[in-house]
Simulated scan of single mutants.
Amino acid sequence: MPRFPSYDRTTLGYHVLGAGPPLVCLPGGPVRASSYLGDLGGLSRERTLIKLDLRGSGDSAVPDDPTSYRCDRMVDDVEAFRVHLGLDRMDLLAHSAAGNLAELYAARYPDRISRLVLVTPGLRSVGVETVGFAEAVAARATEWWYAEAKAALDGWQEAAARGAGPDEVNPLRKGAAAFAYGRWDERARLHAEADEWERPEAASAGFYADFAPDTPAVRAALAGLAAPVLVVAGELDPAPSPAAAHELAALFPHAEVVVQDGTSHFPWLDDRARFVKTVFTFLSEE
């Protein structure tokens, strides 16, 4: 498994999978080991996936400075990764919480991105509100698991709002996991259960600790991004909902939104073929 020293000499690991032009991949979680991305629904048959384990997760080392887990500080890790790979410009894919990281990277290093794919991305870096959240949750009300998952979701939101610790929050987060999948079947449950050991608590908590981005400045920088941007949203995803994904896309001069029917927060699991076709087509456009 290859490794490299980042800007502060913290050793970061990454995984290379597939064939074709490189696609650098940043995992969400926040700070979940990149193994949960798998082969992105088979996208590795078309592209070489280079999946970074963010500091403190997967095969990457724990940093000496825990404040370096913060989202905006990890931008320097992404740039060190690009330099290590010897890429003048890169196609970059980010999922979920790592969408914030990719947005900040694009704002700071716009000339280093050739194409940007944001898959059900986070919105904090750009200050987009989670519009459509309640409606997306209510739309699952006929599901057999809804009552129990909704109670856990409500408890999670309440606990997070008052700053509860992981011992209280994590079981509620786990109980609400069904909302993140288009089908709450055995495969989805196994994928969700892996989150417990793939997402280290210190790194995950540090990602948003004292995170206060200058959203007007980030938005202004992204308004000048020349690279094409694809935002992939799940029809059933509460965060970001399709409405929020469209608000995010509006911040870029060259962005498109694809909403995958019947999918939620992990669209490559819910509809592999559609996801691969969507992303590969975007990356292949002249």
Score class of each variant (00 low, 15 high):
Asp59Thr: 12
Asp59Pro: 12
Ser60Pro: 12
Val62Phe: 13
Asp64Tyr: 05
Pro66Arg: 00
Thr67Gln: 05
Tyr69Ala: 04
Tyr69His: 07
Arg70Lys: 09
Arg70Met: 08
Cys71Lys: 04
Asp72Ser: 07
Asp72Ala: 07
Asp72His: 01
Asp76Gln: 09
Asp76Gly: 03
Asp77Met: 07
Asp77Ser: 00
Asp77Ala: 02
Val78Glu: 13
Val78Gln: 14
Val78Leu: 13
Glu79Ala: 15
Ala80Phe: 02
Ala80Arg: 02
Phe81Glu: 00
Phe81Ala: 10
Arg82Thr: 01
Arg82Gly: 04
Val83Glu: 07
Val83His: 08
Val83Cys: 15
His84Ser: 04
His84Phe: 03
Leu85Met: 03
Leu85Cys: 06
Leu85Ala: 06
Gly86Glu: 05
Gly86Phe: 01
Leu87Asp: 02
Leu87Val: 05
Asp88Phe: 00
Asp88Val: 05
Asp88Lys: 03
Arg89Pro: 08
Arg89Tyr: 06
Met90Asn: 07
Asp91Pro: 09
Leu93Val: 06
Leu93Arg: 04
His95Arg: 11
Ser96Pro: 15
Ser96Ala: 11
Ser96Phe: 06
Ala97Arg: 10
Ala97Asp: 14
Ala97Tyr: 12
Ala98Leu: 11
Ala98Cys: 15
Ala98Gly: 10
Ala98Asp: 15
Gly99Leu: 11
Asn100Ser: 05
Asn100Val: 08
Asn100Ile: 01
Leu101Gln: 02
Leu101Tyr: 12
Ala102Trp: 10
Ala102Pro: 13
Leu104Arg: 05
Leu104Tyr: 00
Ala106Leu: 08
Ala106Cys: 07
Ala107Asn: 01
Ala107Pro: 09
Ala107Trp: 01
Arg108Thr: 11
Tyr109Asp: 06
Tyr109Pro: 01
Pro110His: 09
Arg112Phe: 08
Arg112Tyr: 08
Arg112Ala: 12
Ile113Thr: 04
Ser114Glu: 10
Leu116Pro: 03
Leu116Met: 04
Leu116Lys: 13
Leu116Ala: 03
Val117Ile: 07
Val117Cys: 07
Leu118Ala: 13
Val119Leu: 12
Val119Gly: 11
Thr120Met: 01
Thr120Tyr: 01
Pro121Met: 00
Gly122Ile: 08
Gly122Phe: 03
Leu123Tyr: 11
Arg124His: 14
Ser125Tyr: 04
Ser125His: 03
Val126Ile: 05
Gly127Met: 00
Val128His: 10
Val128Lys: 02
Glu129His: 14
Glu129Gln: 15
Thr130Trp: 11
Val131Asp: 10
Gly132Glu: 12
Phe133His: 15
Phe133Ser: 14
Glu135Ser: 09
Glu135Met: 07
Ala136Tyr: 04
Val137His: 11
Ala138Gly: 08
Ala138Asn: 10
Ala139Arg: 09
Ala139Lys: 08
Ala139Ile: 03
Arg140Cys: 13
Arg140Tyr: 09
Ala141Arg: 11
Ala141Phe: 05
Ala141Leu: 13
Thr142Asn: 12
Glu143Ile: 01
Glu143Gly: 00
Trp144Asp: 15
Trp144His: 13
Trp145Ala: 03
Tyr146Trp: 07
Ala147Gly: 09
Glu148Gln: 09
Ala149Gly: 05
Ala149Leu: 09
Lys150Thr: 07
Lys150Gln: 08
Lys150Asp: 11
Ala151Gly: 07
